[in-house]
Every structure is written in structure tokens, then in C-alpha cells.
Design a protein around this nucleic acid. Structure first.
Lengths: 204, 204
DNA sequence: CCGCTAAGTCAACAGTCGTTTACATCACAT
DNA sequence: ATGTGATGTAAACGACTGTTGACTTAGCGG
């Protein structure tokens, strides 16, 4: 083998890229679930099964680790938004929301977008993603970047975004039946919500 | 005067009830804005202009202070819900949301409902308020406690609650134009949202 | 005026936080 | 096989956390 000998085939006991990735996965879940301040680097390192010092080695600081998590969220959200055929927003929202469970399910991207570290630069990063996301939502209702907007469309788009984020949060809180509603249960009500907010004042 | 002499008329330099109240007000704002973990007892005490030890004297612990804040939120929310004529939910939501500003405005009750201390008992308290709030919302759409619900109505009511909480959160994040939208700007879009979600499948 | 209790302050405690430094160990090239 | 840089570990640092006990002082009754 080209990689070092080990009991497990094809894996190395020491792989910087792999442990870095592992730290990121754990940190994303912990930051999303507990928030920045409540999530400690020791907890993250322990759950990842590595030493605490590696966080500072690979990410400089706790803040750096959080920023890396946020960067991942940005990419993931851009990727998810890119797949949406621009007509079925509710389905996309339902999918995102459904991926968030109280146990810290597979997908907590939207939750991460709400956690704050207090750092100004990270905060701007966060706001930028939210703004772009809202613009994309507004575009589905006829909003255009150059054309002067009276603010109504963008405001309504941000209202939809609010709902998407609120659903994710309340699901994480364990509120029933919302928490244990499947993706399919969420699509229809969300469609009514989006239509109500965005199509209500649509000119044509 | 029956109260002790002081430069300010009618006020005492030492008043347990008053300082307790002052601590509560500051704590509510700090907990709502920064979350439980990030808000330190020293910061709260300093902003209130009193000594840190008084927090433990009056509220036993930081957890006790947080619980007291949550209790206030419960009362405040019940009071606000009591005034609503049960027909104009959107206006009430808009009012609550409008009271939340990024600088930590006059009203952060909904924000407080999302902050978690990790304590199990406090968590149940939090969930209880959310549940009751959702039930009240569902009732406006015809839901009744005894009648068996297929989950649709309650789910949709919780969706509205999600939107209300999401708006409050995003406003606190500083997202524009949502953040600087007045109460009057919010009412119409919120009405469309509530109608879209709750009236869409209404039988009659 | 004096004393006693309530109200508030002060300083320190033990624990935990993020971070750093010095050391050990593995993987690979030579 | 062996040295060497990359990878991971252990232990400690100072700062900060919530909390506590002893102390001081204001306010009221006598």
C-alpha cells in the first residue's frame, strides 16, 4: 500500500486531513446545538477523540474553528440553493428543516447561521449569507437587484427566511408535533406559507 | 418621610426590592441578547451597578436568575396574549417582533424563550410556554383541546409560531430591511403569512 | 443617641476556560 | 535501517467563571 500499515485497511492512524475533517464535523454539531459560548474546545476534542491542542494547531483558535464551520455552512447552503429549480422553494426549506433533529441530526446548517461568537468579522460573514439567501428568495417573487424595490418584496422574502429558520430552531427545541414531523408533513404547510407571503401581492 | 433620607426625593439608597427588579431587567436583556452561557453574572451586576454577590443573595444562583427571567417572560406573554381579541394574531406578532431591536430594545420576550441554560427543569418550562402559545394559535384556526387532531392544525400553528420567533431573531441579527421595519410595515406581510398557513385548509 | 438588622461590599475560593510549550511517536524518504 | 519532519500527547499557564463567607455600612426602632 502507499499508505502506512494499519489494522484497518486503507486507513492511517495519523492523517492530518482526516482528523481536521473530524474536528470540523463534531464542531459543527456542537456549535449548532449548544451555541458558541457553551460549546467548549475540550468537549469538541474529546468527542472527536483527539487532543485539545490540535484545535489550535489546525484552526489557530476556537474562533478560527467556528469560522471554518461557518464557511462550510456557506458552501453547503450555496450548493443546496443551486440545486433548487427556483420554483420549489418550500420543498427546499422543508428538506433543510427536516434535516435538523433535537439529537443533532445530519444537517444543522441553518442553526449554525444563527449562532454568534461575538467576533465582528464572523458576524458580517453570517449577515452576508442571510442577505444573499433572502435575495435569492426575493428573486423568486420577481425581485431584481438593480430595479428599485420599495422594500416590500425583500421584506417578505426575509419573512419567509425567518419562518425557515424558526422552524429549524423550534424543531431543535423539541416542540411536538413539529419536531417529529417528517419532510413530507412539512412541505404542504410550508407551501401555503410561502405562497401566502410571496404571492399575495404579486402583480401578475 | 417614611423612607430614609436621600438626595433624590422618595428614593432610598438601599432598597432590596428595587435592586432585585433592576437586576432582573438587566439580566433579561443580557440573556436575550447574548444567551445564557455568554452572559456573565459580573457583566449583569456591573451594568446594574450592584455587587455580584447580590445575584446569589436574591436568586440563589445564575440559573435561578435565568429562571426568574423566564418566569417574567411567561407572565408577560400570557398578559400580551390575553389582550389579543383572538382575531388579530398578526398584529400581536408584529407588535412583539417590533419590540425587539438589535440594540436590545424594550421587548425581548420571544428571544428569551429560545435561550437555553441546559438545565432540565428550565428547559421544560420553556417548552411548556411554547406549547401553550402554539395551542392558542391553533385555537384561532378551529383547534380544540379534546377533539382529536390529525396534527395538521397544531403543526400549522407551530409553523406560525416559528415565523414569529424567526422574525424576532433575524431582527436581532441586524438583517435589513427586516430589522428597521416598523410595526406597521410588518402587519400586512404577517397577515398574509398567517392567513396562508392557517386559513388555507380551513373547512368553512 | 444607640444598637440591631437588613442591604451591600470585598476578597478569595475552587473549577473551568482557551491557549501554549515541551515532549513523544508515527510515517515516509533515503 | 534510520533519521527527520509531520502528527499527536501531556501538562501547565493565566485569565475568567460562579459562588461563598466575613466584613462594612445604611436605615429604622427603641
Amino acid at each position: 500500500m502507499t499508505v502506512g500499515t494499519d489494522r484497518d485497511s486503507g486507513t492511517r492512524r495519523r492523517d492530518a486531513a482526516k482528523t481536521r475533517q473530524l474536528l470540523l464535523e463534531v464542531a459543527r454539531r456542537r456549535f449548532a446545538r449548544d451555541g458558541y459560548a457553551a460549546a467548549t474546545v475540550r468537549d469538541i476534542a474529546d468527542e472527536a477523540g483527539v487532543n485539545v491542542a490540535l484545535i489550535n494547531r489546525y484552526f489557530d483558535s476556537k474562533e478560527g474553528l467556528f469560522e471554518a464551520c461557518l464557511g462550510y455552512a456557506v458552501e453547503e447552503l450555496a450548493r443546496a440553493a443551486g440545486d433548487v429549480p427556483r420554483t420549489d422553494i418550500p420543498a427546499a426549506i422543508a428538506q433543510q428543516a427536516a434535516g435538523t433533529t433535537p439529537e443533532g441530526g445530519p444537517n444543522q446548517v441553518l442553526l449554525l447561521l444563527l449562532r454568534s461568537s461575538g467576533d465582528e468579522r464572523t458576524e458580517q460573514m453570517r449577515l452576508g449569507v442571510l442577505r444573499r439567501f433572502a435575495e435569492r428568495l426575493a428573486a423568486t417573487a420577481g425581485w431584481q437587484p438593480d430595479r428599485p424595490d420599495d422594500g416590500q418584496l425583500m421584506l417578505r422574502a426575509q419573512l419567509v427566511l425567518s419562518a425557515a429558520i424558526g422552524v429549524t430552531l423550534l424543531r431543535a427545541s423539541g416542540l411536538q408535533p413539529l419536531t417529529y414531523a417528517g419532510e413530507r408533513d412539512l412541505v404542504e404547510p410550508l407551501r401555503d406559507l410561502v405562497n401566502g407571503v410571496l404571492r399575495a401581492t404579486r402583480p401578475e
